[in-house]
C-alpha cells in the first residue's frame, strides 16, 4: 500500500513537472493541427462569404482526389525529391570522403564547402535564376562557347529544361549539408578497422563497400529523412525560380497549397491539402524509422 501510493505521488509529480512542456506542445503543435483538420471538413472561402461556412464532410478530400493539378504536383514533388536527393547523396559522400582525409588546410576547406548552405534559399534561387535567365545569361554563354548549344535557349519554357536550374540549385545548396552529416558519420568509424583490413590485404574499394558504407548507414538514413522531408516541402526555391511553370509543370504540392490557401484564400480546401501533405510526410518518416530501422537515438553500438 505504502509503496503504491509513493509511486502514485511520484507519477503525479512527474506529470506536474512535464505539464508545462506538454501544454506548450499542445498549443503549438496539436491545437493548430487539430484546427486544420477541422477546417478541412468545411467549405470556407474567405473571399466568398455568401457561401457561409457549412460542414461538408470529406468533400474537400474528394475534390483533391479528382484534381489533376494536385496529382501533377505530387508527381513533381516526388520527382524533385528523388532526383535531387540521389545527386546530393552521391556528391555529398564523395565530398565527405575527401574532407575526411588528413591534409593541410582541411579546416578551411570544411568551412568553405558550407558557404552555399549558409546562403538564404531565396537569394540562392535568385542567383540561379539570373544564371539561367534570358539568352544573355551565364549558362547560355558557357554552353554556346563550349559548342554544346548552337544558340542560346530559353530554359524556363519547357518542363524538361526548367527542372535543370531547379535541381542544380538544390544540389548546389544542399550538398554541403549532406556532406557535413556524412562527415560526422565517417568520423565515428574506428580507424583500426581500416588498418586491420589493410593488413588482410583489402583494397580501397573493398574497404569502402564493406567497412565505410555499412557503418555509415545510420548517418545516411538520418540524412535521407532530413532531405526527404525537406524535399517534400520544397517551396521557396521553386517559387522564385519557375513559379511552378511553364504551365504547372514544375509546381510542387507546397506551392499548390500556398496558392489555394493564401492566394485564393480557400481555407477549407487549402487545409485539406495541408492535411494530405502532413499525412504523406508523416508516413514517409514512419516508413524510414520503422521500415529501415533508423535509430534516431544513436544507440546503434
Amino acid at each position: 500500500m505504502k509503496k503504491i501510493s509513493r509511486l502514485g505521488n511520484e507519477a503525479r509529480l512527474g506529470w506536474t513537472l512535464v505539464a508545462p512542456a506538454l501544454i506548450v506542445i499542445g498549443l503549438i503543435a496539436i491545437f493548430p493541427l487539430g484546427w486544420t483538420v477541422w477546417e478541412s471538413l468545411h467549405l470556407h472561402e474567405l473571399r466568398m462569404p455568401w457561401l457561409g461556412q457549412p460542414f461538408i464532410g470529406l468533400a474537400n478530400y474528394v475534390e483533391i482526389a479528382n484534381d489533376p493539378r494536385f496529382w501533377g504536383a505530387l508527381g513533381h514533388t516526388a520527382f524533385f525529391t528523388v532526383v535531387s536527393i540521389s545527386l546530393e547523396l552521391l556528391i555529398g559522400l564523395f565530398l565527405a570522403l575527401a574532407m575526411n582525409r588528413v591534409f593541410r588546410g582541411r579546416g578551411f576547406v570544411r568551412a568553405a564547402v558550407l558557404v552555399p548552405w549558409a546562403i538564404p534559399t531565396v537569394v540562392a534561387a535568385l542567383l540561379w535564376r539570373f544564371i539561367f535567365e534570358s539568352e544573355g545569361g551565364i549558362a547560355n554563354a558557357l554552353l554556346v562557347d563550349a559548342h554544346i548549344l548552337r544558340q542560346p535557349m530559353v530554359w524556363f519554357i519547357e518542363a524538361a529544361t526548367a527542372w535543370v536550374p531547379v535541381i542544380l540549385a538544390d544540389v548546389w545548396k544542399t550538398t554541403p549539408f549532406v556532406a557535413l552529416l556524412l562527415l560526422a558519420g565517417l568520423q565515428n568509424i574506428d580507424l583500426s578497422l581500416y588498418e586491420a583490413a589493410a593488413v588482410d590485404g583489402a583494397n580501397a574499394w573493398w574497404q569502402l563497400r564493406h567497412i565505410t558504407l555499412p557503418l555509415l548507414k545510420p548517418a545516411i538514413l538520418v540524412t535521407l529523412i532530413f532531405r526527404t522531408l525537406d524535399g517534400f516541402r520544397v517551396f521557396d526555391l521553386i517559387y522564385v525560380l519557375t513559379g511552378g511553370g511553364p504551365g504547372t509543370s514544375t509546381e510542387p504540392v507546397a506551392l499548390y497549397t500556398f496558392n489555394a490557401l493564401l492566394q485564393n484564400l480557400r481555407f477549407g480546401y487549402g487545409s485539406a491539402l495541408s492535411v494530405v501533405i502532413f499525412a504523406i510526410t508523416f508516413g514517409l518518416a514512419l516508413l524510414y524509422v520503422r521500415g529501415l530501422g533508423v535509430r534516431l537515438g544513436g544507440d546503434e553500438a
Binding site: 473571399r47 466568398m48 519554357i157 519547357e158 511553364p246 504551365g247 509543370s249 492566394q263 485564393n264
Partner: peptide, 23 residues
Amino acid sequence: TPIYTELSEILQIELHRALVRQA
C-alpha cells in the same frame, strides 16, 4: 465577376500551356 482572381488563375495556366506548346 466576384470570382475573377480564380478565373484568372485558371486562364493563366491554360494560356501559358498553349503558348509554351504543351497544349
